[in-house]
């Protein structure tokens, strides 16, 4: 790919010796008085797809949103532990959350294009980063990578809201990858989509994995099996009277599904597939 002035993405072979891009360690996490997550430690490997699965309310989305400090926008959020992105603690007071989010992009559960044209949606991040080069080229590149180019190349001027749900979500992916972030977070990206659109997004993830590290939250176990290299299973602990999520086990996807170590994992997988 062409050389660019945007946030530089390290070559896949580079990085810490152990190949860990983000080291997520949530010892205890609260929203105000609500004790939401405990004991969740998930090192995320470079150039792979990592999935977060578990029942609703287990804190998997919360864990994902810690990775680019989206939780800062929630009042009362605080936690003990650390999140290290390429060996820098991103919650250190010296770190600017805005800068973090430019390196760690995000795709949300509901497609959320801006009320502007397809082109401007994709160009938004480029403009944010003060990109000086050829916008049209970068926009096209991002749309091609998001497997959307052929469908929208004749309607770049149309509103992003005029696309179908699946197209909108791929537009959001294009928007997120246009600036070449190092990591792409996806929070149940297919939950609002039909099966065909879902399949397109999954194929896309497998292609994108070549260039980006991807972390995905999904409630769909088959999806995790189809795309993820490693999977973390989270569960809800109601023993203290609250509803606190925690990590049960975190292993290569195949092992986790074929040979779960913990009873909770076994029960959940059995329940979901029966």
């Amino acid at each position: 790919m062409t050389a660019i002035e945007l946030p530089q993405r390290p070559a896949p072979s580079n990085g810490s010796a152990d190949g860990i891009v983000i080291d997520l360690k949530l010892d205890r996490l609260w929203y105000g008085d609500f004790f939401a997550v405990r004991d969740t430690h998930m090192p995320i490997e470079r150039g792979s797809i990592t999935a977060f699965i578990g029942p609703s309310g287990c804190g998997k989305s919360t864990a994902l949103r810690c990775l680019n400090r989206m939780n800062d926008l929630v009042e009362g959020f605080r936690f003990e532990g650390h999140v290290r992105f390429q060996d820098q603690d991103i919650y250190h007071p010296r770190i600017d959350p805005v800068a973090v989010r430019r390196h760690i992009g995000m795709v949300f559960q509901q497609p959320n294009p801006f009320a502007m044209s397809v082109y401007k949606n994709v160009a938004f991040g480029l403009k944010l980063n003060g990109y000086k080069g050829d916008y049209a080229e970068r926009v096209e590149l991002a749309l091609r990578r998001a497997a959307l180019w052929d469908e929208v190349k004749d309607k770049l001027k149309q509103s992003g809201l005029s696309l179908s749900g699946g197209q909108q979500q791929r537009l959001c992916i294009a928007r997120a990858i246009a600036t070449e972030p190092a990591v792409l977070l996806m929070d149940e990206p297919c939950s609002a989509l039909d099966p065909i659109a879902t399949r397109k997004i999954e194929e896309l993830m497998l292609e994108l994995k070549e260039r980006y590290t991807i972390a995905i939250v999904t409630h769909n176990l088959q999806q995790a099996q189809r795309v993820a290299d490693k999977t973390g299973f989270m569960y809800v602990d109601t023993s203290q009277g609250g509803r606190t999520g925690y990590l049960v086990e975190y292993r290569p996807t195949r092992e986790l599904f074929d040979d779960p170590r913990e009873q909770a994992t076994k029960d959940y997988i059995a329940g979901q597939f029966s």
Binding site: N14, F85, Q86, D87, H103
Partner: peptide
């Protein structure tokens, strides 16, 4: 830090500026 091959890691600047 450097990786085993000795090439410097390309670390993104994240500090408040």
């Amino acid at each position: 830090p450097s990786d085993p091959a000795g090439t410097p890691v390309d670390r993104p600047r994240l500090e408040h500026d």
